[in-house]
Design a protein around this nucleic acid. Sequence first.
DNA 1: AGCACGCCGACT
DNA 2: GTCGGCGTGCTC
Length: 741
Amino acid sequence: LIYQLILPLPLPRLFDYRAAPEVNPATLGIGVLVTVPFGTREVAGLIVNISTSTSIAANKLKSISAVLPLPALSADFCDFLRFAARYTLTPPGMLLKMTLAGTMPPPPPVGEAIWQRLATATPTTCKPGSKGDRLLALLPNQTTTLTTESLHAAGLTASDAQALVKRGVLARRLQETLPPQPDPDHHQPQLTAAQQAAAAELVVSIVPPTAPAQHLQNLRPPAPRPPAPRPIVLQGVTGSGKTEVYSEAIAAALRHGQQVLVLMPEIALTTAMLSRFTQRFGAAPLVWHSGLSSAQRRAHWWAIARGTGRLIIGARSALFLPYATLGLLVVDEEHEAAYKQEEGTIYHARDMAVARAHHDKIPIILASATPSLESHVNIMQGRYAQVRLPERFGGAQLPSIQRIDMRAENLPASRFLSAPLVTALQETVAAGEQGMLFLNRRGYAPLTLCRSCGHRLQCPNCSAWLVLHKQRKKLQCHHCGYQALMPEHCPACQVPDKFAACGPGVERIAEEVTALLPHARVAVMASDVLTTPQAVAELLARVHRQEIDLLIGTQIMAKGYHFPNMTLVGIVDADLGLSGGDPRASERCYQLLQQVAGRTGRANKPGRALLQTFQPTHPVMQAMTAQDQTAFITAELAEREAYQLPPYKRLAALILSGAEQALVQRVAQQLAHAIPQDATLRLLGPAPAMLALLRGQHRIRLLLVADRNRSVQDSITAALASVPIPKALKLQIDIDPYSFF
DNA sequence: AGCACGCCGACT
DNA sequence: GTCGGCGTGCTC
């Protein structure tokens, strides 16, 4: 027999092996992890197929050396890995690498020492009346065990037992203690009627496993299984209690003895979120993210693979782990762009989660206040089911949302806050309430130019402007980490002191607020100011203690924090997401505004949101103030259809990069010629990528726009077969690109 | 990704 | 004369 393996290496194909004579073929099956000789070394491998023939010359064929002492994976999981590799055009080995996560030998068992009688022990082994004799009297047969505690109760000690271990009479083992298990009935929250109804709809999709989980289940004939259930979109406005509702589905799966994975955007993996699960289930969930220490990673990996870890909360990489008995997947904040892995292995964790649920034939819940447009279309076309939570929990009202037409404000170039917004800030502070200003731009000013010659301070490695950070007196590139001090003379015309800061960043808004409201206590919240989770937590605590009146921040302020006294949100530049050639800009802007607006008025005080915009007639702005989600989706879908964008078309981006511009251009041209265009596939480019120069690398992008019912992957694979990519260049393939950088 | 093989500069 | 730089090519 020929075994076809995925090896955890960036190689595009499977490798064929036979079984070594010392390996029992009965232990080899699809999903079994083994070690194989590869070149001069020994590597791990996953059996994904068994065949009777091979195209490899017999003298090249090597043999599987050993079966790894790891739980076998399911055939469904192997199919999922291979599907994900084909879809994302990533070598399957790179996905297997995520599954193994640098797997190491099992962690030392933690538990209590117990002693057991060995078969060799006879009644005459010990002198009558001796400690050993008294101890053996407590062990009438081989199945009885003694703990340290029971020894003490009999006036004996652990060392008495160890003495008998030395003499070969007793065996010492560790009784493994399981980590605290989540209890589905630990603390059932009081749900409203609407929440109960929604929870009931989710719970019916949770079915017990058709067969008890068994390792090597693929060696027996596959049991017939019901078809995969439809993914469910759980939609509820901010504060409607989505977590409590999907927790009922989690409880149902836990009652069946299944594992549950809740995926969260990386930033949402906060202690606050984890403690909510701990309160509900009485045990801390198992976390998985890139920041785990290697000891933690090892312990958690084994708990997941053995099935002793039951409730797992993880960032996107948790999706590829080898769950023993996965019964339910939840993707929280389904619309979040953070699910898109943009570097290395490029994939969308939400989409791959749907694929995994499909292959495993288990339910998946996509939760969001503002589901992605893709999910909306899937609901409309009947591929996804929908469960809605219409009300805000506790009867809190959504804030009123008001547009401010910045064209009518006529602000001087160095001012960014309109009169109505300033008035609202003053009223809020005077009333003893809190407010926040949102601007998704770090630093003081995004552009600095010389008023003498017009020269713009630019990053030497990237086609991007340097951002002024006034506090740290630095110019910074936000793409490559380049830093410089503010020069005294213009590097182009040598004229001193003629620099002008153009446009606002959060630091500059803070400066303006301080000038306008000198008595207000102001704090800036941005990723470069708050570098550690502790710093974030500390600032949030100060806001809660009302030591801050006005919070000014970027993205990171918009994520799921509750500020009960926060009654005002000002969006400094609501148009920011609308510019640029990003097809999802409007959608992201809308979701962000909803999210930020949802920060206000969550307790008993009504909140309000003010949007500063130069495009008050834009459909996004209209839909925001009308609070009409359906209108927004309709308008946005019409736009996507008109411009041939997802979800009507499928996109794929090829980004070719290298130090030598001419070579990058030439190969990009060759690639473009190798992609056959027809009525179902258009090619845009080659064109300079959004950042034509990044970290010193020239970048050219090809964008494929294809009909949804055809494979864009096949066209790319064919083109790559005929155009070799020189070693000096790097090709990045991004199926379903989100960011156009 | 590794690791070997291979062909050119500064050392015991 | 050798040790070792990292370019290129292969791994069932």
